[in-house]
Amino acid sequence: MAAKVLMALFDHVDPVAEVLDELRRQGIDDHDMTVISGVPYPARVLGRPMVWERLPWIALSGAFVGFLIGLFLNAGTPLLYPIRVGGQPLIPIPPSAVITYEFTMMGLIVSTFLGVLWESTFPSFGPKYYHPESINGRIGMLIRCPEEQLPEIQEMLRAHGARDVFEPEEWTL
């Protein structure tokens, strides 16, 4: 049986959390339900399972790469062309710490930004299910469900106070 996509718009977050529970009871998987809102609602507010976030690891990896680049510039480049000045060490540790630190932070910052783009698959302007009302104060809910469950789910959504229930269009964002 073909799957259909439904969108419901709610005025408040409480019925959204109830609807999510109800849909789970009706056999809809968490992956087939998406809440769209203009404000971040933490997973526990919506009663959603916690998703392991990879972003901190991406950030840490970037920081490590930055650290290595900093280390190379401080310790590697003087060895490529050694010039001893006034009996000073070729690779002095305290001054080396500064650039190494800056590159570590640069790596952390840039990789965090790239990580967000990667994890959210941005930029992505292609056609996607969306409704502008969902970032204009309402809370949108996208549900992918088997066609035969459609009437039952529509009724349940309305019973929970959905303002609008409809088959959404794909928008080019």
């Binding site: 809440v35 972003l55 930029p123």
Partner: peptide
């Protein structure tokens, strides 16, 4: 500049985590 933002839970979660790290 919006990069195709819709405001899904996953987008918000990544954004909030990134803002905290930043």
């Amino acid at each position: 500049l919006a990069l195709g933002w819709r405001g899904t839970e996953a987008e918000w979660q990544h954004l909030k985590t990134a803002i905290t790290i930043f």
